[in-house]
Simulated scan of single mutants.
Amino acid sequence: MKTIKLFLASSAELKADRLAFEVFINRKNKEWVARGVFLELVIWEDFFDAMSQARLQDEYNLAIRDCDLFVMLFWTKVGRYTQEEFETAFGRFQATHRPFIFTYFKDAPISTGSAKKQDLQSLWAFQEKLDALGHFYTRFETSDGLHLHFSRQLDKLAANGFITFEPERDTADGTYQATQSGSGAVAQGPGATALGKGAVNIGSTHTSTINTGTQVNTGGSA
């Protein structure tokens, strides 16, 4: 089983979208686990909140450096911790070409009465930063739209060889099946070798007669 680690970063205001994304990954795993790939979603809710010698954010950053994919969601603001997580992922990508980074901006109505100037300024500053880096974020309006787009990105990673699946089997119990029509050879299972009609495969010393087809004994005459 190959494990692909995916870190999800976002502010608390997108809690509902985070939960929906977790459900989406679980559903994706139902399809991919059977093909030998498991998507391990890493979210800050799973970390232990007890006091430690280092910042808890340092634990998040360490997890990001160990991930294959980094997904960031933002809406009306980009908090300093979320921005720190992006910078950690981007710095790691520049050094090792991993994790692959995906940023999604939720383009949805907000209440202007509750919007804070400082929050909006952090949003605009981060968007300008992405533009300066040449990184293009993707807009989404609903969780379904987000899931559809990211699912297609996962499929592209698989098509490009970043994600590799195990060879598909015909039955769930690990056996192989094949149907043969007419004469010819059939090979089943990993490493199997098919021999054509009339062929002989000798794996050890052989001294007796080998008959590969119809044989006529003429007793020495023509």
Rank of each mutant, 00 (worst) to 15 (best):
Leu6Lys: 03
Leu8Ser: 02
Leu14Ile: 06
Leu14His: 05
Leu14Met: 12
Phe21His: 03
Ile25His: 04
Asn29Cys: 03
Glu40Leu: 12
Leu41Pro: 00
Val42Ile: 15
Val42Ala: 11
Trp44Tyr: 07
Glu45Gln: 13
Met51Gln: 14
Ser52Phe: 07
Gln57His: 11
Asp58Arg: 03
Asp58Lys: 01
Tyr60Phe: 11
Ala63Ile: 10
Ile64Ser: 04
Trp75Tyr: 14
Glu85Cys: 03
Glu85Met: 04
Glu87Pro: 01
Thr88Trp: 00
Thr88Phe: 04
Gly91Gln: 04
Arg92Thr: 14
Gln94Asp: 08
Arg98Trp: 14
Phe100Ala: 11
Ile101Phe: 03
Thr103Tyr: 06
Tyr104Asp: 04
Pro109Trp: 00
Pro109Cys: 03
Ser111Pro: 02
Thr112His: 05
Ser114Val: 12
Ala115Lys: 06
Lys117Leu: 14
Leu120Thr: 11
Leu123Tyr: 07
Trp124Met: 10
Ala125Cys: 03
Glu128Asn: 15
Lys129Leu: 13
Gly134Val: 05
Tyr137Gln: 12
Tyr137His: 15
Arg139Val: 15
Asp144Ser: 10
Asp144Phe: 09
His147Val: 08
Ser151Ile: 07
Ser151Ala: 13
Asp155Gln: 12
Lys156Val: 15
Ala159Asp: 13
Gly161His: 06
Thr164Cys: 08
Phe165Pro: 00
Glu166His: 03
Pro167Thr: 07
Pro167Leu: 05
Asp170Met: 09
Asp173Trp: 01
Asp173Pro: 01
Gln177Ala: 08
Gln177Arg: 14
Gly191Cys: 01
Ala192Glu: 04
Thr193Glu: 13
Ala194Asp: 05
Leu195Trp: 02
Ala199Cys: 10
Asn201Leu: 12
Asn201Ser: 12
Thr205Gln: 11
Ser208Asp: 11
Thr209Val: 10
Val216Ile: 15
